[in-house]
Design a protein around this nucleic acid. Sequence first.
DNA 1: GTGAAAGCGCTAACAG
DNA 2: CTGTTAGCGCTTTCAC
Lengths: 349, 349
Amino acid sequence: MKNTSPRNGKKQHATIREVAEMAGVSQMTVSRVLNRRESVKKATRDRVDEAIRTLNYRPNLMARSLAGGKSLFIGLIFNNPSNNYLGELLVGTLHRCREAGHHLVIEDFSVTSRDKEVDALVERISGAGLDGVIVAPPVSEDEVILGKLRAAGLRTVLIAPRETPQDSVSVSIDDVAAADQITQYLIERGHKRIAFVIGATDQSSSRRRYRGFDLAMARNGLAVDDTLVMQGDYTYRSGMVAGEQFFSMDDPPTAVFASNDDMAAGVIAAAQRRGKRIPDDVSIVGFDDTAIASAMWPQLTTVRQPIAEMGYQAVNLLAKVIGGNDVSRPEKSIVLDVSIVERDTVRQR
Amino acid sequence: MKNTSPRNGKKQHATIREVAEMAGVSQMTVSRVLNRRESVKKATRDRVDEAIRTLNYRPNLMARSLAGGKSLFIGLIFNNPSNNYLGELLVGTLHRCREAGHHLVIEDFSVTSRDKEVDALVERISGAGLDGVIVAPPVSEDEVILGKLRAAGLRTVLIAPRETPQDSVSVSIDDVAAADQITQYLIERGHKRIAFVIGATDQSSSRRRYRGFDLAMARNGLAVDDTLVMQGDYTYRSGMVAGEQFFSMDDPPTAVFASNDDMAAGVIAAAQRRGKRIPDDVSIVGFDDTAIASAMWPQLTTVRQPIAEMGYQAVNLLAKVIGGNDVSRPEKSIVLDVSIVERDTVRQR
DNA sequence: GTGAAAGCGCTAACAG
DNA sequence: CTGTTAGCGCTTTCAC
C-alpha cells in the first residue's frame, strides 16, 4: 500500500515533538513559548524559537483544539450567499478572525423550510467541533433554528436579531432611529409626498424601518398616504414593481424611501424607464449602503449601516462568550451607529 | 430556560466511547459502523445505531481529522469578499461541501502585496490543518502565492488560473471562445463599430477576453478602432469612465462590449447620463452574468459563466486530489461551457 | 466479525 | 522555570 502522506516519506509538517528534540527541551516548554505563556527563560525561549524557525514549524490547529477543549474555528451561518450584505459582513468578520487567530467556517442555511433539513444542518455544524457561531440575518430571526443551535451546545452571537433580547448576545443597529433620521432628512428638504417601500415580511427589520418612517412623518404633521406605501421583499425586482406603481399615479410622490438599496435601485430603474429624471423629478433614498449604492447612476443617497464593523464586533463578542461562562450578560450586546451618506439621488424641493 | 452550559463538567457531546458502552461493543465497532458499514453484523450495527440515536451522538470532526491524518475541512482562498463573483462561487462550493461532508474554511488574501504578509497568511492556513485549498481568482494567478501554498504542503485546485497549466488542477472556462462568441453575436445583429472595455491588467482573463473580441472582429473583416478600446479594471467606475469617453465622441460606437458585468453597468450609466437610450441608441453586453446583470435596467445581455458550477467542481476535484496520490494528472482539469444570456441591452441595427 | 493497543499533535494538571 | 503524566475523540494497526 502506498503511503498516502503528501510526498514520499517526507513528513509534511514538523511537530512539536521534533521542535522539542531539536531545542533540547520538553514538548511542554515548546508549548509554553508558543502560547506566550509566563515564565520561560529567555535563553530557552530563544533556542525554541530557533528550532521553530529552522524546522518551519506550525502548530496544528485541530490538535490544539482537541487537546485544549476549545475550538479555534468559529462558524458563520447565513442564508443567501449571493448578496451584497454577506460580502460586507465577511470583510469585518475575517478581519477580526485573522487578528485573533481564529478561522472561519461558513455554513449556508438556505434550505430552512423543512424541519428535517434544519436538523441535518444543525447536526452537521455541531459535529464540526466548532463551539460558537455567528448568525447573520435573516437566520438570526428564526427562533426555531436558533433554539436548535443552542440545544446542540453551540454558543451564538446574533447579527440584527428580531429584537435585542436580554438572553442573547447580539450586534445590531437601531433601525427605527435610522429610518426616522433619513425620513426627516427628506422632509427637511421640502418633501411632503413621500412614498415608502417595505422590506420582506419575514424580516423584522422591515417593520422597524417602517415604524421609523411613520414616526418621522407623524412628528412633522405629515400624513402617510396608504397608496404610497408598497410591500416589497428586499429584492431589486420588488423595488421596480413598487416604482412602476408610484410613477403611474396621477399625483406621484416627490420622494421615495426604499427599505434597502436593492429595492431603491429597482425604484430608480422604474423611474428612468418612465422618463423621470433623478433627482430632478423625484428623489430616492435607500438603506444599508451596500456596494450597489455607489455602483449605480446616479449614486444613491442612503443610510450607511456599518456591516463590516458588525461582523468584526460579532467575532469579538463570540470570543468572549466562548471564553467566559456568563453567556447572558445583556451588556454584551452592541448597538452600532448609522449615518446618512449623501450622494446624488435627493434634491431640495 | 436555563443555560445549557458545557462548562459544568457536564459533557456537551456524547463520545464514541459512550456509544460503545451503551451498545456493549468496542469503540472500533462503532467506528466501523460510522464509516464502512460492511463488515459489521447487522444485529450489532443495529444496536450501535440505536445507541447513536438515543445519545444523539455526532462524531467530532477535529478528532477524526487528527486521527485519520486527513482533514475534512477544506479552504477557500480569495481576494475581495465584497464582490458578486465570490457569492456565486460560494453557492456551488458550499453545495458540494455539504453533499460530501466537508466544511469550508475561508481565508481572505487581500493583502497580497508584501512578501511578509503573504508568508504570514500562508503560515496561518497551513497551520489550520487543512490539507487542501481552492484558490479563486485573482489569487489563482499569483504564482508567488501559489508556490508558497504548495511549498507549505497544501494541495490546491485553481479556479480560472492564468493558463491551464499541465501541472495544476483547475476549473475554468474558455474566455477566448466566449468573448469571440458574444462579439460574433453583436456583429450578426448588424454592429460594426464595436467598442471594447478591457478588464484589469493584472488578470489574465482580461487579455483572453480581448483576444476573443479581436479574433471575431478580424474573422468578420472588421477593423478594431484603437480609440474604441479602453482600459478598465473590472470595476463599475472604470466602466463609467470608458463610457463617458465613448459617448462624447463625434462618431460613437453602436455597441459596447465590456469585459465584465460591473463595467457594463458603468457603461450603461454613462450612456443614460448622456441621454442615450439603451438599446435603441446603443447596444451593450457584459460578461459573467453575476447578480448585477439582472439587477439593473434595462437588464443586461451577457455571457453566462457558470460560476457556482465551477465552485462545485472545484470541491470535487480537490477531494480527489487529496484522496489519490497522483496530483498532476492533467485530465483532472475541467473547462466548463458558457452561454449567451439574451436580455434587453442589444438591438438589431 | 470484532477487539486491544497505540497513537494523531497538542495542552492540562501537577510535579519538581 | 521546566518536565512528567494523562488524556482530548477518533482511527489505525494487528490480533483473535
